[in-house]
């Protein structure tokens, strides 16, 4: 058994709420985040907000990325945010992507979706967003990122 000194990296959950089965975008994000040094958990397609919130709790992730192409983002994204808050996961960063009309972005941000990344976003921009938000959290506070 050999061992190298690898520091823990940020844990991110990528989830596909709702009924659309198109997860090429989600897979690209999973791959890009993995290659950027994150530990990435992927739920697979067709998840309910309840399943996503429960998974975020069990996996104790620092961020949840939601991908949706069906148009139900205004219902499902805030529902995930609310369920997470109810479980004491209000400190977990939620971001989203997919086919999101520009005019919905401000409303989503108001409802707790911290970043929205549409088609054509360079994956580097998402990595930079996560690094900025997650690296900034002081190590001591990391253990209490979920206030519980």
């Amino acid at each position: 058994m050999t061992e190298v000194n690898t520091l823990p990296s940020h844990r991110i959950l990528i989830a596909k709420p709702g009924l659309d089965g198109h997860d090429r975008g989600a897979k690209i994000i999973v791959r890009a985040l993995r290659d950027a040094g994150f530990e990435v958990i992927y739920t697979g397609i067709r998840q309910t907000p309840e399943m996503i919130a429960r998974t975020a709790l069990q996996e104790d992730v620092e961020a949840v990325g939601l991908s949706l192409l069906s148009g139900a983002h205004m219902t499902l994204f805030p529902r995930v945010v609310d369920l997470m808050k109810k479980q004491g996961l209000g400190g977990v960063l939620v971001f989203g992507g997919g086919i999101i009309p520009d005019e919905d972005v401000a409303a989503l941000k108001k409802k707790g979706v911290a970043g929205v990344f549409g088609p054509g976003t360079p994956t580097d921009a998402i990595v930079a967003f996560l690094r900025e938000r997650l690296d900034a959290a002081p190590k001591a506070a990391k253990g209490s990122r979920a206030k519980r």
Binding site: V4, T6, L7, S9, V30, R31, L33, R34, D35, A36, G37, F38, E39, V40, I41, Y42, T43, G44, Q47, T48, E50, M51, R54, T55, Q58, E59
Partner: peptide, 22 residues
């Protein structure tokens, strides 16, 4: 597995398991 090159990982076992998530 963790990547020996980037330190990142894709933890994919969860995908097969979501029927039990609730």
């Amino acid at each position: 597995p963790t990547s020996a090159f980037t330190g990142g990982a894709f933890l994919g076992d969860r995908m097969r398991f979501q029927a039990h998530s609730l």
